[in-house]
Amino acid sequence: MIHFEGVSKVYEGQTALANATFSVERGEMLFITGPSGAGKSTLLKLIYHAVAPEEGSITINGQRTDSMRARHIPALRRNIGVVFQDFRLLSGRTIYENVALAMRIRDAAEAQVKAQVMETLKMVGLRHKADAYPDALSGGEQQRVVIARAIVADPIIVLADEPTGNLDPVTAAGIMRIFKDINSRGTTIVIATHNKDLYANTGRRVLRLDSGAIAGEDRG
């Protein structure tokens, strides 16, 4: 589903990712771990083409994306749901509107938008907060809204950047249950985290990054 071949990314002379080669199978749940600045976020950004690599090739769902034309990028991103580390919720819009945005971008009919947004909000336990604004929600609740927005349109890949960042263990466990749930329906998931508790005893593949290089691979 995702294949990196010798991919390197440099920011102003600083190597963020060096010669990375790895694959993620369809329906897999992969963890990427490593200390801050190891290149986890860069790796995810390369997948949804927020940045382009200097070297190497990236193939997503059978399509080369590293040298893709700008006008094809929106279509690529519509196949990928992203749980951003900084959330990127629109503060002037309600929770419902924030989640619905992901479907409106895909030109979904209004009835379908309503049905799917409400169902997804129910899944993340926030149906009762549909009319609230992001600022009125706790960090854990906002995190779940971002997850809802990432999965509402049934993307083939979900990327999550530190999805349990500052959350307490109980909330973090709840969020992981949501990821397992959507993964069990066949969605490929890549989670970048430095929280060992997330992948410990899961039996999932864990890719270790260190200073921009792939330092090894384990099973959680």
Binding site: P74, R77, R78, N79, F84, L101, I105, R149
Partner: peptide, 12 residues
């Protein structure tokens, strides 16, 4: 910027 990252087209 958020709309772009979510996959919105220029016209959207």
């Amino acid at each position: 910027e958020t709309l772009k990252l979510l996959g919105a087209t220029g016209w959207f």
